[in-house]
């Protein structure tokens, strides 16, 4: 079983390098400021040998979005969760981590498509599932279900 590193310990390590980046931590996760995300991610990738990005998830908390990065070291068999918040609802932008983990490419596009969060520095920031011209981002809590094709929503 992969050992989950303790959030406060990793936060302390990051804090020595980036004093303003940390906004908090809990048992398994470290919260960082979104502007400092790329620098922090690069730092812990190297210092903790986190060679694998399991997944990126976006959560809509209505007053802000939260991005969750599950990171694992396949070599050292440990992992940590990195979280960042984005308070801008109209035009949310977060730095892309594709330059660190190639696997982030499609996942960031998926988040852009369904949640409407742009990733700065992504090589190909466009919709992945829905088509060009689709109105809105369907996984947002305030998305209204209007069925294309004329049918009425049964929900």
């Amino acid at each position: 079983m992969t050992k989950q590193l303790s959030g406060p310990e990793v936060a302390q390590q990051i804090g020595e390098q980036f004093p303003d980046a940390i906004t908090g931590s809990d048992e398994t996760a470290v919260f960082v400021r979104s502007e400092a995300l790329l620098g922090v991610a690069r730092f812990i990738k190297e210092s903790l040998n986190l060679d694998y990005l399991n997944s990126i998830t976006a959560v809509d908390y209505i007053d802000h979005f939260e991005l969750v990065y599950h990171l694992t070291s396949l070599e050292n068999n440990h992992g940590i969760i990195l979280k960042t918040k984005c308070h801008d609802r109209e035009n949310p932008i977060v730095p892309s981590v594709v330059s660190l983990w190639q696997g982030a490419d499609f996942q960031e596009r998926e988040i852009y498509d369904l949640m409407g969060i742009s990733f700065e520095g992504h090589p190909n920031m466009k919709r992945i599932f829905l088509w060009d011209g689709f109105q809105g981002h369907p996984l947002r809590k305030d998305f209204h279900l209007d069925v294309p094709g004329g049918g009425k929503s049964s929900l």
């Binding site: 829905l130 689709f134 279900l145 209007d146 069925v147 929503s153 049964s154 929900l155």
Partner: peptide, 17 residues
């Protein structure tokens, strides 16, 4: 008919459309 995804934003509600 679209089945349980009938109300979805991305599913065609019936092949006969």
């Amino acid at each position: 008919s679209g089945g349980c995804f009938r109300g979805s934003y991305s599913v065609v509600p019936g092949l006969n459309l």
